[in-house]
Design a protein around this nucleic acid. Structure first.
Length: 574
RNA sequence: GCCUCUGUAGCUCAGUGGACAGAGCACCGGUCUUCUAAACCGUUGGUCGCAGGUUCGAGUCCUGCCAGGGGCGCCA
């Protein structure tokens, strides 16, 4: 399928060059040509504001637009190209072109609007990356949904995509997890235990402990916390993978932070940074103020190893290796991203919560300190997400309490159980990452028209219903004459042709939520048509019905493609 | 205090420096004898937080305020 925006942009650029060659326009460097879809009817399907050229050409915008309009090469999709004040070029898509796209859409099917911009390139999306110390929370879920949608969109753009999960099972948190499980296990055996407040309080560890007792009895009483840590990790990862699979998310690779220690790579990276003069040993950082120095001296720290990140614009330097010789998380993080870049990805997207903002900056500085180009790395920062419900008395939204009790919507599993995988995916995706997300549990549960999930899926369901009925009646679309399609149907095809542009925009701006809004718009164009444009009614002439059936086949392809890009199912019935 | 995100209709939110500011929900009033009405049609609804600035043109860019979220550890 063609990207009509792009075709028109190229045509306009050619027209400007032609006008420059003939001397009708002066010579100037041609700026980007922004072609967009006008909001209002009567302004065509594609529009270009030529006003931006007025200053460069020192001419009236309307005159420039006329000039470009005259020089535009023949375009097979365009019919009426008009110039409108104060200097717009409006282009309408030809009806016969739209009609021809019905068959083109059906022919492309599952790979509708597969783009070439990532052709031969490799992309990686690192997402979720939750340490195996507990279940997938509602916060992780946003990252999971956004990351997977980003991966699907990159695939649609032609990239070969790897989904990676980075985790750390070696830190102090995992020690705590192991010890927590050990205590829970002994609790289950009836031992009197004191459970420290800083240990993992979650009910899920009690359940794991109960499982262990059921499977092994008291035979584990002699095991140390290491055994329980490993047991906890195995079960947590099982759980995490199962939860993610329940919303159709799977990773291709799991990268263990420990491997960077075992291979010694973190030390090699540290040495490289040291050789280029970005590392120093000191008790406190070079720019420390009196308060900081006093604070450090009161704690009596021995010298630590610092990264002079302030040289890259950071507000202060960062400790890479603590005074006890143990690296902070910063060093392996930098090493991991260094490793990513060495693996040669053209794009490495990292989906993180906004609470990792500072850390991501430090990693970027570290990559620069290694003399590497951080450009392939792009971080999508998701703002906070919380589950809320409306308080019936006050009418205010209130956060659902964070707890492991059933029904409190704290985990991905809870969300899926109370709503559905499709609802979770849609609602988590249908928001700009920059926006905080209040996941309104009660609304998502509702299976009414308040819920856009069903609105979109119902478009596909309605198509499927027509196909079923047509088959029962032995009616098919063989030999359909697409010239019989009306304006309604062609308007939908015109909207569907924007999909390529949406995919491209979502990929270049790293904003996968654009596809969710497009899906909603597409459905809102579809439903009124379904109401008006009937297929299997007695008063519809047979030839018209065939054309319409073919149209709905194309519509179904479009909805299926869009739903899959969002990781949602395309149900045949509801 | 510094960094960052947000502030657009009653609510939840879209919005590539371009044309008269958009959608869903809610509200109000209509549509099922024919492919499932989880739908459709119509009405109502706005000082785009405030104040300046840049521009032919600002919800969009810049500066300063105001309000809210998040981050600023030899924690991960």
């Amino acid at each position: 399928m063609k990207l009509l925006h792009r075709e028109l942009e190229l045509a306009i650029e050619a027209a400007i060059k032609a006008a420059q060659a003939s001397g009708e326009l002066p010579q100037f460097g041609i700026p980007p040509i922004p072609v967009s879809a006008p909001k209002r009817t009567g302004q065509g399907d594609l529009a270009y504001p030529a006003m931006g050229l007025a200053k460069l050409a020192r001419m009236k915008p309307l005159d420039i637009a006329r000039l470009i309009g005259d020089k535009l090469p023949e375009l097979d999709f365009a019919d009426d190209i008009r110039v409108a004040p104060p200097g717009f070029i409006n282009c309408s898509i030809a009806k016969d072109y739209l009609a021809r796209q019905v068959d083109a859409i059906i022919a492309e099917g599952d790979v509708l609007f597969q783009l070439g911009i990532g052709c031969g390139k490799r992309a990686q999306v690192e997402f979720v990356s939750a340490n195996p110390s507990g279940p997938i929370t509602i916060g992780h879920t946003r990252g999971a949904v956004v990351g997977d949608a980003m991966a699907r969109l990159l695939e649609a753009a032609g990239y070969s995509v790897q989904r990676e999960y980075y985790y750390n099972n070696a830190g102090s948190q995992m020690v705590k997890l192991g010890k927590s499980l050990m205590l829970r296990y002994r609790e289950q055996l009836g031992d009197e235990v004191k459970f420290p407040a800083e240990y993992y309080q979650g009910e899920y560890l009690v359940e794991v402990a109960a499982d262990l007792v059921a499977e092994q009895g008291d035979s584990l009483r002699g095991e140390g916390w290491e055994y329980f840590r490993d047991a906890a990790e195995t079960r947590m990862f099982d759980w995490i993978e199962r939860s993610l699979a329940s919303i159709d998310i799977r990773h291709d690779a799991f990268f263990n932070e420990s491997s960077l220690f075992e291979s010694g790579k973190i030390w090699a990276v540290l040495e490289t940074m040291r050789e280029s003069g970005h590392i120093y040993e000191a008790a406190y950082w070079e720019g420390a103020g009196e308060d900081e120095i006093a604070d450090v001296e009161s704690k009596g720290y021995a010298p630590a190893t610092w990264f002079r990140s302030s040289a890259f614009g950071d507000e202060k330097d960062r400790v890479m290796v603590k005074s006890d010789g143990v690296p902070t998380y910063t060093l392996p993080d930098i090493t991991y991203h260094c490793d990513k870049l060495e693996r040669g990805f053209d794009i490495a997207v990292n989906v993180l919560g906004t609470d990792h903002f500072s850390q991501a900056q430090v990693v970027r500085h570290g990559i620069e300190a290694l003399g590497m180009d951080p450009e392939p790395i792009h971080v999508i920062f998701n703002q906070m997400v919380r589950a809320v419900r409306r308080n019936e008395e006050t009418g205010e939204y209130e956060a659902v309490k964070q707890s492991k009790r059933a029904g409190d919507f704290d985990t991905l599993d809870d969300l899926v159980e109370m709503t559905s995988a499709d609802a979770v995916r849609y609602h988590m995706l249908a928001r700009s990452p920059n926006s905080q997300l209040d996941f309104d549990v009660d609304q998502v549960v509702k299976q009414t028209n308040e819920n856009p999930v069903y609105y979109i899926q119902n478009a596909y369901v309605r198509c499927a219903g027509i196909f079923r009925e047509a088959e029962e009646r032995g009616f098919d679309d063989a030999g359909a004459n697409l010239a019989l399609l009306g304006e309604d149907e062609l308007a939908f095809i015109g909207k569907a042709l924007e999909l390529g542009n949406v995919i491209e925009q979502a990929v270049v701006t790293y904003e996968p939520h654009k596809i969710a809004f497009f899906a909603q718009e597409l459905a809102s164009v579809f439903h009124p048509i379904y109401d008006r444009v009937r297929v299997l009614h007695s008063e519809v002439p047979r030839e018209t019905a065939k054309a319409r059936l073919r149209f709905y086949r194309a519509a179904a392809v479009v909805f299926q493609r869009v739903l899959r890009l969002m990781g949602m199912s395309a149900p045949e019935r509801m």
